[in-house]
């Protein structure tokens, strides 16, 4: 399956290449379980492109920067491969006029879900993973302790199990056939609802416990395709000095709270912030809670319609109830 899609990807990339100055995709990483982004500037390198359930990075994170740096000479475009969730980030960038649609060639990848390495490691325990085979809906994990089989669904990332948009919402070409979404919007906020069921004190204790691990490495911020002011972040400026350099809880709490608030009505739930966290803090939950609020309050979901303006960047004089 994957090899068919991979050759289809190569074919479609070849076809598009004459119009492209750059193509951003995934290539094999340092082992079979890791992929790494690749920036193709020569058609000979198209063969490096891969597509499989390990292609985890949201390549929209590179888009704004390459757009700013690109001259657009000879009307050449920037090609980018996107999964369903990644395409929403791209739309969110379009909604905020941070990129221009006509400068991009979007290769859409209908996606059955991305494997969560942490879940694989949890299943293999202390035994080193030797190889992992994904066949249709089944996973075979071979470790020093033996071979384990389980359904693919069990090891997908949290965001994939609640994914409503497996098909890219914006694309110039699709690789593979469109897929059927798995859940409705109601179930999508189950994880948020679980926290909401806790008492106020329990919620505070939960977040204090989780956020206390934060190293302030800012990976969650830098991996976010919509955190576009990261070099001028309140977390690091000294003037005004919103945060000290201490590793106290209020500083970490404040950073994550503000990071999330800046994404209210903008976050497309690609889950990168949570995936990249070396301390495995569920930071995406905070943004999901905000999205639930903006959906209920302002009837808005980020990254769906390129024409709509994010609700906190505009107003409605006539609205009531707030």
């Amino acid at each position: 399956m994957n090899s068919d899609l991979r050759s289809e990807l190569h074919k479609k990339a070849e076809q598009a290449w004459p119009d492209l100055e750059l193509l951003i995709g995934w290539q094999a990483g340092y082992d079979d379980l890791h992929t790494t982004p690749v920036f193709i500037r020569d058609s000979a390198e198209i063969s490096k492109l891969i597509w499989n359930p390990w292609c985890t990075q949201n390549l929209a994170v590179y888009v704004a920067k390459h757009f700013a740096a690109s001259s657009g000479k000879d009307d050449k475009k920037i090609g980018v491969c996107v999964k369903g969730c990644d395409s929403r980030s791209l739309i969110a960038l379009l909604q905020e006029n941070l990129v221009a649609r006509e400068r991009f060639y979007i290769i859409g990848m209908p996606c059955k879900g991305i494997v969560d390495l942490r879940k694989l490691h949890a299943l293999s325990g202390a035994a080193r993973i030797l190889s992992v085979q994904v066949n249709a809906e089944q996973v075979a994990l071979k470790s020093a302790a033996g071979v384990l089989h389980f359904p693919l669904d069990e090891v997908l990332m949290r965001k994939c199990r609640r994914c409503r948009y497996p098909n890219p919402l914006i694309h110039d070409v699709l690789v593979g056939d469109p897929l059927t979404p798995r859940t409705d919007a109601h179930e999508a906020y189950n994880d948020v609802a679980a926290i909401e069921r806790l008492s106020l004190q329990e919620r505070l204790a939960f977040w204090q416990g989780e956020l206390d691990r934060c190293l302030r490495c800012y990976a969650c911020r830098n991996a976010c395709p919509l955190c576009v002011c990261q070099d001028r972040c309140i977390a690091e400026t000294r003037d005004p000095k919103w945060l000290t350099q201490y590793m106290h809880l209020p500083e970490k709490f404040m950073f994550h709270f503000i990071h999330a608030l800046h994404l209210a009505g903008r976050c497309t739930e690609c889950g990168e912030c949570e995936r990249v966290c070396p301390m495995e803090i569920p930071v995406a939950l905070i943004k999901e809670a905000l999205n639930k609020i903006t959906l209920e309050l302002l009837d808005f979901e980020a990254g769906l319609d390129p024409q709509r303006v994010p609700p906190l960047l505009t107003f409605d004089a006539g609205e009531t109830g707030i």
């Binding site: 920036f39 990075q57 190293l215 302030r216 800012y218 990976a219 911020r221 990249v276």
Partner: peptide
Amino acid sequence: AGQCLSCGICTFVCPTCYCFSITDE
């Protein structure tokens, strides 16, 4: 390193990285 996100993970988890900032609080 074209794909680098400029986060601090590699340096923070590194046993040999020692660079530090000095600030007054």
